[in-house]
Computed example of a mutant assay.
Amino acid sequence: MKTLAILVLCSLAVICLTSDASAGSQPASDNLAQEGLFVEREQASTVVRQKRAAGDLSLTQLESLREVCEANLACEDMMDTQGIIAAYTAYYGPIPY
């Protein structure tokens, strides 16, 4: 029964790959070639996500950083004196969000 199902799926895949439906996707690639791969700086800056400043973190994000830092005694001590942002950055690198 499993062999029959595999044969049916393989035959459907071959039919889909060899059908004329793949010819319909060529105009989309032509549009991409006409538009080009480069965009203006202003347009790109609206699309690309900007890095957030440390002060923009939510309480949930700060709490998750605090939980990670509490597992390391040195990080926890630094967190108490210099703050969670400085301690996390010193021991674990840049903040992931």
Rank of each mutant, 00 (worst) to 15 (best):
M1Y: 11
K2C: 02
K2S: 11
T3E: 11
A5P: 03
I6R: 15
V8T: 06
V8D: 04
L9Y: 06
C10P: 13
S11C: 06
L12W: 05
A13Q: 06
L17M: 09
S19R: 09
A23M: 09
S25N: 15
Q26I: 08
D30P: 02
N31M: 10
L32V: 00
A33C: 03
A33S: 02
L37D: 14
V39S: 15
E40F: 10
R41K: 15
E42D: 08
S45E: 15
V48M: 04
R49F: 13
R49H: 12
Q50S: 10
K51S: 15
R52V: 09
A53P: 09
A53C: 07
A53G: 12
G55A: 05
L57T: 02
L59C: 03
L59G: 04
L59H: 07
Q61P: 04
S64R: 07
R66T: 13
E67K: 12
E67F: 15
V68T: 11
C69W: 01
C69S: 01
C69I: 03
N72E: 10
N72F: 04
E76C: 10
D77R: 07
Q82G: 04
Q82F: 05
G83N: 03
I84G: 01
A90C: 03
Y92L: 01
G93E: 02
P94D: 10
P94R: 12
P96N: 07
Y97F: 13
